[in-house]
Amino acid sequence: MVTLKINNIEAVVPEGTTVLEAARKAGIYIPALCQHPKLTPFGGCRLCLVEIKGMPRPVTSCTTPAAEGMEVATTSPVIERLRRTVLELILSDHPNDCMVCEQAGSCTLQELAYEYGIRENRFEGERRKYARKDGNPFIERDLEKCIMCGRCVKICDEVQGVEAIEFGYRGFDAKICTPFEEDLDCEFCGQCVSVCPTGALTGKLWSKKGRQLGVREVDSTCPYCGTGCMLTYHVKDNEIVRVTSKEDGLNEGLLCVKGRFAYKYVNSPDRLRKPLIKKDGVFVETSWDDALDLIADKLKEVKAEHGPDAIAGLSSARCTNEENYAFQKFIRAAIGTNNVDHCARL
């Protein structure tokens, strides 16, 4: 453990903790755009600069390991001036079209511009212009909004192990692209989308469906594989408009392409809406009352004629615990047979 002082507050943290992590633990806010708890430190955005006694210049708190006896100041007139300059520089090369941006309201850059009250900008100049071109149906890329924080590159490599994207080119022309700008070879997990601090990476499905206003969030569990990732449905007007995942679930905010992007089955036009009864080989819509009466009558009839073991029930691994419990109880207690199974083996 090392003991350091941050803004004159003593903090005791395990060795290897960065100054930024130590500050956050102590409840001290330091702005940052490129730092992310899942990723190795990058040190590119320069917003988390702090002053450390004995160091000749401000250092990035996200890359500096806390050391015994360190005295850190997370804010000072110089630090605030530098942060402001950095923000103005970023915004001077940003579309600033928050009005129509999908990410408005959940954009870290927007929030920092708001916090620093940046309306005027000393550094207007050329902005990067990119034609939008991507052939994938999941992820919308708007490179003009990219602030080169590198989170997407790092999560794709360090967490997802895919390395679909890289830094390309130099200086002002630097951009995130596929290696050698070849075709994208991607799992579309959308991890990059989830960590992008701006609107550079968003879900294609989200487009114009709703941002913050009138959107409810409902926490639930992913309906696909057995991992059981926690996810959050964003709902507007009885429609799921976005799926995200919170950091505190067992999956720590990670999802796969199915969990993140395959939610549109819910409001598919092919969904069944009414009970159907087959009459002369053709399905005819009917009422719940008639359908359930028919089923009850038929089951009673078969049970009476052939015994309960002539009836079988097949449940599903996609139904809830409660539904499965009730279903097997229905087959066992109401029908009277153990002919009940589900698709575990398949």
């Binding site: 040190g43 590119g44 320069r46 520089l89 550094f123 080169m148 590198g150 200086g171």
Partner: peptide, 21 residues
């Protein structure tokens, strides 16, 4: 320097560009 900046950090990537402009 503008042309040789690696593009990683904001002050160098955008700052040298703005200085040059």
């Amino acid at each position: 320097t503008r042309g040789e900046s690696c593009g990683k950090c904001v002050p160098c990537r955008i700052g040298t560009k703005r200085l040059l402009e």
